[in-house]
């Protein structure tokens, strides 16, 4: 922490400052790396343990001092995927999450377009109306919602687990904030050229919002992926169930009276892969422009 000066790649330091800043930079970087490794280790510890345990046999897991890769190898994964049908649940969950992401991004882009680039009465009220939905707790909504699904004939279908999630206050809010930060000159050009609203969205706004779209997609994907209570209630057909409920099924699995934690850990690691994949794919655009700006 001793360092007071900090050099970056962008500056062209003079001969004199270069030397001192080099050592400072080394010290500073070392500190940053150490702090990062330390905090990432702490943050990742439960998951590292989960990965280790997913390779252990049931008896090995219960030995608290046994911290090595276990003897079960990948057999827990195999059992989880085949015998407990996790593969099927994963496919269902991927379909559900992709539908929700695409639906939510599309709907929210349209709504944000209207909110930012249209003049219409009660703008503020409409926006508030959308934002307020953040505050309705899910658990109690479930009962009326379930009846609604039955009334619509949607129960036990993909519609039931995606429909209620394809609009969201957060996504509209984020897109709206992002659009307001887009330079007025661009908007002005579009207006002078007489570009229609949808063309304006596709040609100007979307290319300028890649980062934000990536960000909303990641967050939405993870949110959708994590749904548990709602699918459990509304999907009655086991083959249409989602991964989170599938993991719950694993918890009921016990071998000779002992909960098979290896299997549960393997299930957790498997369920972690798709969101992780999405994160890896989208992390670059995400970091480039995914920030909330205020105008």
């Amino acid at each position: 922490m001793a360092t007071q000066t900090e050099s970056t790649q962008h500056t062209e330091p003079t001969q004199e400052t270069q030397r001192s800043s080099l050592s400072a930079r080394f010290e500073g970087d070392l500190f940053v790396h150490l702090a990062l490794v330390g905090s990432i280790f702490l943050v990742g510890l439960p998951l590292i343990l989960a990965v280790i345990m997913s390779t252990q046999s049931t008896t090995e897991i219960y030995e608290v001092t046994n911290l090595g890769v276990g003897s079960a190898g990948l057999s827990n994964y195999e059992t989880a995927l085949t015998e407990y049908n996790l593969m099927q649940y994963m496919v269902n969950s991927v379909v559900m999450s992709v539908v929700i992401v695409v639906g939510k991004v599309t709907l929210s882009l349209l709504a944000a377009l209207a909110l930012v680039y249209y003049r219409f009465p009660y703008e503020r009220a409409v926006f508030t109306f959308i934002l307020l939905t953040l505050l309705v707790p899910v658990p109690v909504r479930i009962v009326p919602l379930f009846q609604l699904m039955a009334d619509l004939g949607w129960a036990n279908s993909l519609l039931a687990i995606t429909g209620p999630y394809i609009a969201s206050a957060t996504a509209v809010f984020l897109f709206r904030q992002h659009f307001t930060s887009i330079p007025e000159s661009l908007v002005e050009n579009a207006r002078l050229d007489g570009v229609g609203p949808l063309a304006f969205l596709v040609q100007v706004l979307i290319p300028m919002s890649k980062g934000m779209i990536a960000g909303v997609s990641v967050i939405t994907f993870i949110y959708a992926w994590n749904q548990y209570l709602w699918p459990l209630i509304v999907v009655s057909d086991q083959s249409k169930q989602v991964i989170q409920v599938g993991i719950k099924f694993l918890q009921g699995a016990s071998q000779s009276g002992l909960t098979e934690w290896g299997l549960i850990m393997a299930g957790a690691v498997i369920a972690l892969l798709p969101p992780l994949f999405v994160l890896i794919v989208l992390h670059r655009p995400l970091l480039e422009t995914f920030a909330i700006q205020q105008k």
Binding site: A111, A114, P121, P197
Partner: peptide, 21 residues
Amino acid sequence: TKPYTSATQAGLLLVPTLVVL
């Protein structure tokens, strides 16, 4: 200055979100 003024169009764009909500 907002480039578009058609309240009807704005309504159409907002309808999917509003209906779902």
